[in-house]
């Protein structure tokens, strides 16, 4: 049970990242740093650039200027598989399981790049974490309920033995009752020492479990502070918290 300690070398960084889509400037001079074992969140409304941030971290989008740094190495031109191999994985928005493949096949695909012997024992760990998943191993994953799919999606991401887990809107599309359980699950994973970078619209929930956070607005980082400070920030309260907008 390790505590989140901010060590001097970040695990994953953005340095002055700018991205474009054609002529349109999406991310503007974004700086981020994720330290090992932290739980951090990125907040922002629709189309603030949150999805692009995740895609750029993973290599699905190439920044026009700036550097994506993993373990001190600039990985701009390295493919997604390079980064996944080095412990950066994602739980996508709306789960996006391989619906026609079985639960087991989905989990195994999570370990696609791994050649070590730990795969079997990791599968067992996932079954322990999610007994419901174990029951449905040979079912086509498209037939599972939303909550169960979320478990499989998280399990699939964990099968890659990540050091930092990116999560895209984990509460999206989940029934309110499940959202709470989901966030508890995230905390649980965090306690195992995995850094978590969460992109969320549900700012309240996210800040309640995070250590730090950023707020993105039309591609620019407008706030960068600890979770408590952000929760107390009046501008933030007005736009994203309290007054009931989403």
């Amino acid at each position: 049970m390790s505590e989140a300690v901010a060590s001097p070398t970040p695990l994953l960084e953005f340095r002055g990242i700018n991205t474009h889509y054609g002529a349109v400037h999406i991310l503007k001079d974004v700086d981020l740093a994720i330290y090992p074992g932290e739980l951090v969140c990125l907040l922002g409304g629709n189309a603030s650039g949150k999805s692009t941030t995740l895609k750029t971290l993973l290599g699905m989008v190439t920044p026009t200027t700036g550097e994506v740094v993993l373990d001190g190495e600039v990985v701009n031109d390295k493919p997604t598989s390079y980064r996944v191999e080095r412990g950066v994985t994602m739980v996508p928005e709306n789960r996006r399981l391989f619906k026609r493949l079985t639960v087991k096949e989905n989990l195994e695909l999570g370990a696609y790049l791994r050649n070590d012997d730990g795969v079997e024992s990791d599968l067992e760990r996932i079954y322990e974490m999610f007994p419901r998943v174990k029951e449905r191993l040979n079912q086509k994953s498209g037939t599972l309920s939303g909550g169960e799919q979320q478990m499989v999606a998280v399990g699939r991401a964990l099968m890659a033995n990540p050091r930092v887990l990116l999560m895209d809107e984990p509460s999206m599309g989940l029934a309110p009752a499940l959202v709470q359980t989901n966030f508890e699950l995230i905390q649980q994973i965090h306690e195992e020492g995995v850094a978590i970078f969460m992109v969320e619209q549900n700012a309240n929930m996210a800040l309640s479990i995070a250590d730090r956070g950023w707020v993105l607005q039309t591609g620019r980082v407008v706030l960068d502070d600890s979770a408590e400070a952000l929760l107390a920030n009046p501008e933030l309260r007005a736009s994203y918290l309290g007054d009931g907008n989403r």
Partner: peptide, 24 residues
């Protein structure tokens, strides 16, 4: 045409971004 192609590429983000900017 640009609009249709962009939608096919799932990049409606920047459209919303522009809309949001206009709203702002």
């Amino acid at each position: 045409p640009n609009v249709r192609r962009s939608r096919e590429l799932h990049q409606d983000e920047f459209l919303q971004d522009a809309w949001l900017k206009a709203q702002a």
